[in-house]
Design a protein around this nucleic acid. Sequence first.
DNA 1: TTGAAAGCGCTAACAT
DNA 2: ATGTTAGCGCTTTCAA
Lengths: 336, 336
Amino acid sequence: MSNVSIRDVAALAGVSMSTVSNVLNNPQRVSSDAADRVQRAIEQLGFVRNAAARQLRVGHSRLLGLALINISNPFFTDVAMGVEEAAREAGYSVLLGNSASRPDGEGGFLDLFEKQRVDGVLIVPSGDVLEKLDGLRRRGTPAVLIDRIDDRGTFSSVSTDDVLGGALAARHLLETGRRRLWYIGMPEVRQMRDRLEGFRGALAGTADVTLHVETGRTIDAAEGVDYGRAIAALPTGQRPEAVFAANDMLALGVIQGLTGAGLRVPQDVAVVGYDDIVFSAAAAIPLTSVRQPSGRMGSAAAALLIEELSAPGPVVPRSIVYEPRLVIRSSTEVRD
Amino acid sequence: MSNVSIRDVAALAGVSMSTVSNVLNNPQRVSSDAADRVQRAIEQLGFVRNAAARQLRVGHSRLLGLALINISNPFFTDVAMGVEEAAREAGYSVLLGNSASRPDGEGGFLDLFEKQRVDGVLIVPSGDVLEKLDGLRRRGTPAVLIDRIDDRGTFSSVSTDDVLGGALAARHLLETGRRRLWYIGMPEVRQMRDRLEGFRGALAGTADVTLHVETGRTIDAAEGVDYGRAIAALPTGQRPEAVFAANDMLALGVIQGLTGAGLRVPQDVAVVGYDDIVFSAAAAIPLTSVRQPSGRMGSAAAALLIEELSAPGPVVPRSIVYEPRLVIRSSTEVRD
DNA sequence: TTGAAAGCGCTAACAT
DNA sequence: ATGTTAGCGCTTTCAA
């Protein structure tokens, strides 16, 4: 670590430590003469403020923690870009945590964030972290949920209406004549359960519809490929006419597995994804998907958190819920 | 921030602060009785160690800073995953910085990292940061370069042979009969200049070859689309037979722009990308690309840095150079 | 095995 | 306008 401190700067500039501190924090309160000498000393010594010491003293870090499920999914990186932009504008930096890289997932990052005394936490939760977040908040670190609502209403959140999103997918599949349906996702993840719920709900009342639910383990492209192959291996009568995948990574994989095994998409099996990541439009078979405004969700969440941080007292949790939008492409509809 | 400190724990457990500190850091030196009481107090109070205070005292943070060019490019997130894995195994956490989100790019993050007193920095450099890194190092923060070599040999690095990568692309295009060639990239970025250099070098000696170089501004999919359209708008005689794009994001965009304007890839224009990101294989027109071992590059770089951190004295910089591999797909070759 | 005390680098009263 | 000083929470001699 750097070993030149404010004390060295003070010595070289021939002033006291507090004068140095003042040119750093209250430049107006110091004579331009002293300020000049301090500036020169800073440059000459290559002084760089020690954030740990400062934070210890002032009690805040101007750091936000952002815990994501999986950084290799473009949906999450879009969220992250939104968060970073809003944070930067308000003078905060963000610590980015990728849950997938930790054996203990998001919990491990929340611990790290708390130890580092970030001023607040943004999280796209996958598991059961609400109790943990309660603890953080009790101890003074507020949190805002992204991509998921807090039913208990204790945390602010920014999400899209996943139930509606699922329904949008279901209606489209129904309208295009599909009756034997599969859902692939992780129903233990709240967002994905909601998408399933909406999907299932929109099916009610239509004759002859069957829905089979598959519970994935990793929800990534590789797993999707496995599912695609497995589906292709099924006897024609048991094969789904359409698959609703809980996110686009998975959906893109399913298509690869399907076509790799010789099936046609959408003629043999239609596929709908979720998130509408940027690569879905340019995929081999462009993917029909439910779009979430990822970047906007990130910046809105950061804004909510920062507002809470600057509020004098406790704050009433707010939930911003965006409306998802179905983007129809070739994976469900033959187009010219 | 959390307001319960080691002092509160000590009071509740009826021991001194140093005993609490010892159960945290040297559990073996404390009686099991005292340890128990301290443990209980910690849980009861919800004590969470203050990393800033600890770091201020011990002089290191166990944090690594990773500065990436653009987190929305899967190549970089793969690198990040590799870094995180190796870091975690060695007991380090990583601060992830996305240069694209800062007006001052990577420089801004280097400042932040240094203020936060990370123990070391990993960087995929785009601009001219070597002098800045010199400064960091002089003040005690070592750095390792990713995806790019340091010609002066002062920093360790992990990269692939970009000159060879460019040559691979050129040879393939030549072999498949293309003669009117375009390169699109940012030659001011070292990696991309090397790719161009290798590309150009491999062209020498072949008759009738022309190479036109386009300098991009953002090197992302959107810009690629613009280039694709622009190329499509060219009179047939001026249109390139093949485009070598400096990365896959750009290449994928070029294909979209081209096909959107009615041209056929590869029949009218062939396209080669760089990085072989995961989406390139599943693209509408699967992309021929030069593959870099992204994850491995990340973990190797982290390992190099950590080794340097644990070394007693100064360390001789090492450069690990992986060999790139050309992956041929439909964007350059008509396949059944 | 345990405790008292100093000090990491910084900021914020307070005094001058 | 500038300096003195205390203290943020922790670890680490050193002494008991």
